[in-house]
């Protein structure tokens, strides 16, 4: 019964997701829907690293960029279809994340976040300023165009709707995987690292190994998303994929919905992306700032009033209801002890 209950939200997501294109007729709405789903996907990928494992990476956009560029270069110069390219891109990004993670995990807390942002900025600067990287022409600020073949074999799908189904499939995969991780032994190791790294190490958890594992998984999924993202545009440039906004967005959506929960990232992106898209259209060019104003305000308000995100706040409310009727003291205790034990 319990496993069945767990699959109800997933079933709702899939059914609603499949019916969205029949309601949204125009190309613009489909493009917005693609944005919504891909951000859900990225936020969920970040959640594995930032939510479950508690590694507050702020530069995960770097893997979107690496995934995008690897796929693009493989397709443009070697003719390897993005279907295979995205897997290779994911593995390259994963490998990179391990190479980066190995020294960086010596750093604790905020230093780790800083290093991750700095790294992304280095990639952005290099890809934006250099016309060639390792002798491969990547176009610098001009970016790199995919040759148009129009074949589904090259992931060049005929309509926005097909791309939408593709990213929806990716989202379902990452959610199923997150769910699996959450309840696996690895997931418990991840959470033990988040709760108290030193205590976990003293109990025999190989902290470095599991941090690197989380890093690899998160980077892999993020990069695959990056590969599909640029294939929908048939174009990639550095500002588009390495930007700070992209990295911050996935963190924001995840935390807004509730980090460390399966559905938090999905809810966060579902709330924020349509608002942004709608504002961008409604406000026009002269009020483009309005969308980033709302974005910033949302960030501030969530941090002020719901540091555990929407789902976290709801959970806390339910817990309070339950305990308040029994004994007010118990509620005070759960409030005080929310530090490490609030999950699940």
């Amino acid at each position: 019964m319990k496993t069945l209950k767990k699959f109800i939200p997933m079933a709702i997501l899939i059914v609603v997701g499949l019916f969205v294109p029949t309601v949204l007729k125009s190309q613009f709405y489909m493009q917005s829907a693609i944005y919504v789903v891909i951000y859900m996907y990225w936020a969920s990928s970040w959640n594995i690293l930032g939510g479950y494992t508690g590694l507050f990476a702020l530069g995960n956009g770097v893997y979107i960029g690496v995934g995008a560029y690897v796929t693009a270069v493989l397709f443009v110069y070697c003719g390897i279809t993005p279907w295979i390219g995205m897997i290779i891109a994911g593995l390259v990004a994963g490998l990179l994340s391990v190479l980066i993670g190995y020294p960086v995990f010596k750093l604790k807390g905020m230093y780790y976040s800083l290093a991750s942002i700095a790294l992304m900025s280095v990639f952005e600067l290099i890809f934006n300023n250099e016309m060639e990287i390792f002798g491969v022409y990547t176009g610098g600020p001009n970016g790199l165009r995919f040759p148009v073949t129009g074949r589904a074999l090259d992931m060049q799908l005929s309509s926005k709707t097909s791309y939408y189904y593709l990213v929806l499939a990716l989202l379902v995969i990452v959610l199923l995987f997150s769910d699996y991780i959450q309840n696996s032994k690895t997931g418990f190791y991840f959470r033990s690292i988040r709760a108290n790294q030193d205590a976990a190490a003293s109990l025999g958890v190989n902290v470095l190994k599991y941090k690197l594992t989380a890093h690899f998984i998160s980077a892999f999924f993020t990069a695959v998303g990056g590969a599909v993202y640029v294939t929908t545009f048939l174009y990639v440039n550095a500002k588009q994929v390495f930007g700070m906004d992209l990295s911050f967005s996935m963190v924001l959506f995840c935390i807004l919905g509730g980090a460390n929960t399966l559905w938090g990232p999905v809810i966060g992106a579902l709330l924020m992306v349509p608002i942004q898209q709608a504002l961008r259209v409604a406000a026009g060019v002269e009020l483009a700032a309005l969308s980033s104003l709302i974005y910033g305000l949302a960030l501030c308000l969530v941090m002020l009033f719901m540091p555990d995100g929407l789902l976290g706040a709801i959970k806390k409310l339910i817990a309070k209801r339950k305990t308040a009727t029994v004994a007010p003291l118990a509620a005070a205790v759960t409030d005080a002890g929310q530090g490490g034990a609030e999950d699940e």
Partner: peptide
């Protein structure tokens, strides 16, 4: 959390 809060405040100021 404070970092994200100040980042949000930064967006507000810029816009």
């Amino acid at each position: 959390n404070v970092l994200l809060f100040t980042a949000g405040y930064g967006y507000v100021v810029t816009s």
